[in-house]
Nucleic acid binder design. Structure first.
Length: 478
RNA sequence: CGAGGUGUAGCUCAGCUUGGUAGAGCGCUACGUUCGGGACGUAGAUGCCGCAGGUUCAAAUCCUGUCACCUCGACCA
């Protein structure tokens, strides 16, 4: 009884205080630590290993699609940042400035990159001269700085790791295709690898990226009913090309501005995984990104043969998954709780009783279901169980999202749902920014994305009653 | 940037009202016994009481300032 109590006290229950539950997990699962600079976090080995797994899956995919990695400078001269009007207006409030080099005051201050459009554009202006130079499909993995007022680990930090793809094309058509293709890459990554159901759609004018012609997003619903913008893909048209004088001779021997895109995803995805799959025991990691997929816990280690058998299993499994054995002298019960906290998808218990029967116990993290597996079958059973877990957590997340998605046909309905039920609201919208403002001011719900390929649920705008143009998903957002 | 909160051992905190030798639990180290849901015994180690001034014979405690972090809003991935 007292043991149960101890467990409960470890992590704040998400029903009691979701924010605290979240920070308890990031700290106790040893994903990150705070640093002495506000909003800048230390990503610890376990957290960084999750990020590295995300990076390697996405990086491989990007390269398959013809993208090349580059590295741009960390500093942007003020004059360069200012070249595109909307862009600087959007980012100015949150950039960090370098004013001195050593003891010398700089002639022109340098901003620490909040995003690298301007750097890519400056470079493209130099290297793009002919239609034969296009397209250029560049990407960089780096860190950027945005001086946020309020910060939260992984969700909104002053410095964060990300990937930014920047491509430049001969035609608008080609650039638009690229924008949609990369949105699909992210969507697929969320659905298949992170096991997170994500809504794909377009941002409204007021929510789109500073300087973009159109912005596309994937939005995921967190446990507490708030939406998280999880990755974005932008179509720039030729605005940036014009502002930065990027010009090439086209196939008709005429000067022309090229068309551009950018797309990115960040360490925020780690926050999404926590808030979609986590539970009151801690983290639940989808196998694809789990640093350790299987943790072997020997029972009564000092008994003859136990340790050897555990090591033997580890050796066999090492060929097919990321596996470790915990041979520390902590008690088995402690180990069970610890690896549940850290979200390890499967644990194997192996003790004298099992060895006698030539079996082991496999426990799934998501539902704590125990399976007895014949030791001859582990190479088959483990991948199967990992896959079942992936499907299981996806299904759970999808069901929850469906359950938390409502429809509103007028503002009264909208307001009632917004005030009583956290989640997505599907509602028709006329396209007027004032209707978005009304929703935000009264309910704190903002437009998350336009879903034009989803069936319209009404002909009138839920906010003003005028003729509706789009079906929009609304939610409180992180 | 607004509102609230917190800084004392690695962690969570007590002590502050009413100034007088720096505390607890957990963790950590060593040895032994344990091990199928957060084990136990014995023996240890650990402090610029966020920082800077001030008041006082004497400050973790009172005063002034300052810095940092957390939570919630407005802004953003």
């Amino acid at each position: 009884m007292s043991k149960t109590k101890k467990q409960v006290e470890e992590i704040t229950a998400m029903e009691d205080d979701f924010a605290k539950w979240y920070t308890d997990i990031v700290r106790k699962a040893q994903l990150m630590d705070y640093s002495s600079v506000k909003g800048c976090m230390i990503i610890e080995p376990y957290g960084y290993a999750i990020w590295e797994n995300m990076v390697s899956i996405l990086d491989k995919k990007f390269k398959e699609l013809g993208h090349e990695n580059v590295s741009m400078p960390m500093f942007i001269p003020e004059s360069l940042l200012q070249k595109e009007k909307d862009h600087i207006e959007g980012f100015a409030p949150e950039v960090a400035w370098v004013t001195h080099g050593g003891n010398e005051k700089l002639q022109e201050r340098l901003c620490v990159r909040p995003t690298s459009e301007t750097l890519f554009c400056e470079h493209y202006a130099k290297v793009v001269h002919s239609w034969r130079d296009l397209p250029k499909l560049y990407n960089q993995w780096c860190n950027v700085v945005r001086w946020e007022k309020t910060t939260r680990p992984f969700l909104r930090s002053a410095e964060f790791q990300w990937q930014e793809g920047h491509t430049i094309h001969e035609t608008a058509e080609e650039a638009k295709d690229e924008t949609m293709q990369m949105l699909d890459v992210y969507h697929n990554f969320f659905e298949k690898y992170l096991a997170i159901p994500a809504i794909k759609g377009q941002k409204t004018e007021s929510e789109k990226f500073a300087g973009a012609e159109s912005t596309y997003t994937i939005e995921a619903l967190m446990h507490d009913g708030k939406a998280l913008q999880s990755a974005t893909s932008h179509y720039f048209g030729n605005h940036f090309a014009k502002a930065f004088n990027i010009e090439f001779q086209n196939r008709d021997n005429k000067p022309q501005n090229p068309y551009q895109t950018s797309w990115g995803c960040t360490t925020r995805m780690i926050g999404a995984v926590i808030m979609v799959h986590g539970d009151n025991r801690g983290l639940v990691l989808p196998p694809a990104i789990a640093p350790v997929q299987v943790m072997i816990i020997p029972i009564a280690m000092q008994k003859e043969g136990v340790l050897e058998k555990a090591k033997e299993i580890e050796h066999r499994l090492r060929k097919i998954c990321r596996v470790k054995t915990d041979i520390s002298d902590k008690s088995p019960g402690w180990k069970f709780s610890e690896y549940e906290m850290r979200g390890v998808p499967l644990r194997i218990e192996i003790g004298p009783k099992d060895i006698e029967k030539n079996q082991c116990v496999v426990v799934r993290r998501d539902n704590l279901e125990k399976t007895f597996v014949d030791l001859n079958d582990i190479e088959v059973a483990i991948p199967e169980l990992l896959e079942k877990l992936r499907k299981g957590i996806y299904k759970k997340a999808l069901e929850r999202r469906n359950q938390m998605t409502y429809e509103a046909h007028n503002f009264e309905e909208f307001e009632n749902i917004a005030k009583s039920k956290p989640g997505f609201i599907k509602a028709m919208w006329c396209g007027d920014e004032n209707c978005e403002k009304k929703s935000k001011e009264i309910t704190a719900f903002t437009s998350r994305c336009i879903r034009d390929n989803e069936e319209k649920i009404d002909t009138k705008c839920a906010f003003c009653g005028k003729e509706a143009k789009h079906l929009v998903y609304w939610a409180k957002a992180y």
